[in-house]
Design a protein around this nucleic acid. Sequence first.
RNA 1: GUCCCCUUCGUCUAGAGGCCUAGGACACCGGAUUUUCAUUCCGGCAACACGGGUUCGACUCCCGUAGGGGACGCCA
Length: 468
Amino acid sequence: MTVVTRFPPSPTGFMHIGTARTGLFNWLFARRHGGKMLFRIEDTDRARHSEEAVAAIVNGLHWLGLDWDGDIISQYGRSDRHAEIAHELVQAGKAYYCYCTPEELEQMREDAKKEGRITFYDRRWRESTLTPPEGVKPVVRIKAPMSGDRVVFDKVQGEVRVQSEQLDDFIILRADGTPTYMLAVVVDDHDMGVTHVIRGDDHLNNTFRQNVIYEAMGWDIPAYAHLPLILGPDGAKLSKRHGATSVEEYRDMGYLPEAMRNYLLRLGWSHGDDEIIDTEQALQWFDLEGIGQSASRFDFDKLNHVNAHYMKLADNQRLTDLVCDLYKIRNIEVDELGRSRLMSRMDELKSRAKNLVQLADDAEFFVKSVPYDFDEKAQAQLNEDGKYIVKVIRDNLSELSSFTAPELEVLCKSVADYHRDGKLGKVMMPLRAAITGRSSSPSLVHAMEVLGQSEVLARIDFALSKAV
RNA sequence: GUCCCCUUCGUCUAGAGGCCUAGGACACCGGAUUUUCAUUCCGGCAACACGGGUUCGACUCCCGUAGGGGACGCCA
């Protein structure tokens, strides 16, 4: 049997991080078994049908590096088929028309609440021979079993059992003839040949309802795997106030897609003590057995750590492109010279940064040119003492015939020996402030080499003329 | 409120009755390296929610309590 999974987001206009993880798991499982992952938009509700919203999800998926098989299916486009099944069930006596008014339902709901029941519909039209009231468009309800236990065998949660009394005759077709989600998922999953339903825990209860439809139609029930939810760092449901909830936000914060995949994978799935698991490895290891049963909290520290790891592995050319994209957003023009400076120091830059934004901050001085700002700490470095030593360095620098890192280091050391008791920091810090405008930077002598003699001298002159 | 699910260091987790003096990773603390910051490398702190069973033996199995999460729509 070929494995077929599905990725069925609601078109909300962005891709929630939980949706992304579910997508990743479905994708890994399908690919691992040489199967397919289908992509379906859950838009039975006409109001949800939106091209832009779909595009946002597609972009998120692309960025994450996941793909799918076949065309994107719209549930909205399949409503005739859904309605057909609903009517078939009515014909077969497994579903029926219900003419209850919203008021009647509201009343039943209140009564149920009073009695502490989970179900509320009293099935008054189930076997009714009453004449339908005038002018009321009926909904179609399915006949749910009224006694015994219902059981779901879940790949993650194990055997889950519930009493049939907990299920009522839920609606499968609305009064306007459109299908409800419950009907649409089942019909679509069946028609699309889905073998494994891997989805959020919040659907576990729905599974019992959906199985009623499968059974009424005599269809095979797929394997289920319900993933525990991702919570915010404080244990509450992950929401906007925790920071980022959508994958595009993580992209904008400078995380790499391969790092997100690794982090998301480990959040709720494990393979012994392995922590760094790249996608290639995951494709060989992923299984449903490794999925944990409890909800997990999103931890930025760990994400940062994983991301830093993948930053070090990333291709320099690619990182340079990504950083230049960030500079573009910052309105910083990067010419060929700037690019080549970035490239030549990328090995060091990427080993220092936890994410792209940090890398961009760290390397900004490479792409800026002479009038630039000095941050507070840099200004403090350029006091009388600082300026004095920078001036000394400047005089020596201008006479240097070979402007390379080793020689620059020797020079700085000798200046430190001669003027500052051998304390190299006393020399480097003011110099760093002058050249980069900041109090911390990558290796200064290497940076100077890359910047070149005339640029370094120009920067020093600028700093000396400007600093207080 | 009713039903369902969950419960190992602060966090992510390993653990399928004796391998556990409970392992790893992140974070944190200390040390080494370093021109700053960061990296890197060592070392340290830190958990089986609680109460009952079952068993020669329970982190592992069962029951209960507490806590957390989810579901209860003509939403998905």
